[in-house]
C-alpha cells in the first residue's frame, strides 16, 4: 500500500513538473498573459465566432501574418483587435510562445526572420 502511494506521488510530481516546466518561452508567456489572454483566453481558445482561437486561426497559422496582425491589429465588427506596440525581441518571444503553446508542429522563429516580417508589414 505504502509503495503504491509512493509510486502515485512520484507519478504526480513527475506529471506536474513536466506539465509545467516545458515552456521555454517564459518572457513570451508574460507578454501573452498581459496583452492577449483576456480576449484569446489563457488556453488560446478565443470566444466562439467573436474572437478567433489561436489553435485554429488561419491568420495565426502563418508566422509572417501573425507578426503583422499583432503589430497592426485588425479593424473588424463587432470586435476589433487592437494593435500592439512591441519591439522585435519581445515580439519574437511572443510568437515563439504562441507557436509552442497552441500549434501542433512548429520550429523556433529567429529574430532575423521577425525583423524581415516586421519590414514586410509596413
Amino acid at each position: 500500500m505504502k509503495q503504491i502511494s509512493f509510486g502515485l506521488l512520484l507519478f504526480f510530481i513527475l506529471a506536474v513538473s513536466t506539465g509545467c516546466g516545458n515552456n521555454p518561452y517564459a518572457k513570451g508567456e508574460e507578454i501573452y498573459v498581459s496583452r492577449c489572454a483576456s480576449c484569446h483566453m489563457t488556453d488560446g481558445s478565443g470566444l466562439a465566432g467573436n474572437i478567433p482561437s489561436l489553435k485554429e486561426s488561419e491568420v495565426a497559422a502563418n508566422n509572417a501574418n501573425l507578426v503583422c496582425v499583432i503589430l497592426k491589429g485588425i479593424k473588424a465588427e463587432p470586435l476589433e483587435m487592437p494593435a500592439q506596440e512591441l519591439e522585435a525581441i519581445p515580439l519574437t518571444n511572443l510568437v515563439n510562445y504562441i507557436n509552442h503553446q497552441f500549434k501542433e508542429k512548429t520550429s523556433e522563429v529567429r529574430l532575423d526572420s521577425i525583423k524581415t516580417w516586421i519590414k514586410n508589414c509596413d
Binding site: 483576456s38 483566453m41 470566444l47 466562439a48 467573436n50 463587432p78 470586435l79 476589433e80 487592437p82
Partner: peptide
C-alpha cells in the same frame, strides 16, 4: 460591452 478589452470575453465564455 462588446468592445471590452478586459474581463468581458472571459465572462461571456462562462455564460456560453
Amino acid at each position: 460591452f462588446t468592445s471590452c478589452p478586459s474581463i468581458c470575453p472571459r465572462v461571456t465564455k462562462e455564460m456560453l
